[in-house]
Amino acid sequence: MYYCAECGTELIEKELENEGLVPYCQHCQVYRFPQYNVAMSAIVYDELEKNILLIQQYGKPNNVLVAGYVGRGESIEEALVREIKEETNLDVAELHFNASHFYEKNNVLMVNFACRIKDASILQCNHEIDQASWFAPMQAKEAIYPNSLAQQFLNGWLDKQGLMTKAED
């Protein structure tokens, strides 16, 4: 069941021309398109594109990607640059869209990028990160938290780069 964000009335599905069935508030007499949060995650490469940064957070030993929510009025790219800077002190030099996935459990559209940073030597984690480590691509593939969205994004990116089966240099 979905409810109107304005008045709390339970929404019904009502036909909207050229849109199909759309949630509708009978009280407000307004169509209420589904709303969700947007977050970004990043496959962070060092400046030579040889290593990938994985982090651990919240007291858990799981290696994941840097991620964070997109703020109101902020583009996804701006959020990515901000989150990486806030959490790791690293500056993004270049970024490329990788993939997106709607995560039903948390009502979040997760948008993933791969990005190269300017200088890996200035890595300094803030209070949100328990630990951060650089991994060669195949090591990152092995170390990433299994059966996670982070693993799905990383493996998809490595596959696109032809690195899923490539031996280490």
Rank of each mutant, 00 (worst) to 15 (best):
N63M: 06
P61H: 02
L16K: 14
A42F: 02
E94R: 11
V70P: 02
Q26D: 09
Q139N: 15
L54W: 00
G68N: 06
R82P: 07
V70C: 07
E94Q: 10
K60C: 02
E142H: 09
E17W: 14
S75F: 04
Q35L: 13
K50G: 02
Q29M: 07
I55H: 02
A167G: 02
Y103A: 14
T9A: 14
A120Y: 04
A114Q: 07
G8L: 05
A67K: 14
N63I: 01
A150I: 03
L54C: 03
K118W: 11
T88S: 11
M138T: 08
M138F: 06
A67D: 10
D119A: 13
V64I: 15
L54Y: 02
E13S: 05
A93N: 12
N98Y: 04
F102M: 09
Y3G: 01
F33E: 07
W157A: 05
K60P: 00
S133P: 00
N107P: 00
C25F: 10
H101G: 02
N98M: 10
L95A: 06
L158Q: 08
E10V: 12
K50V: 00
V22R: 07
Q26N: 11
I12W: 06
Q29N: 08
N37C: 05
Y3K: 07
F153S: 15
Q26F: 03
K60D: 08
R72W: 08
A39S: 13
Y31L: 04
P23D: 04
D46Y: 05
V92N: 03
L123N: 08
K141I: 11
K118V: 13
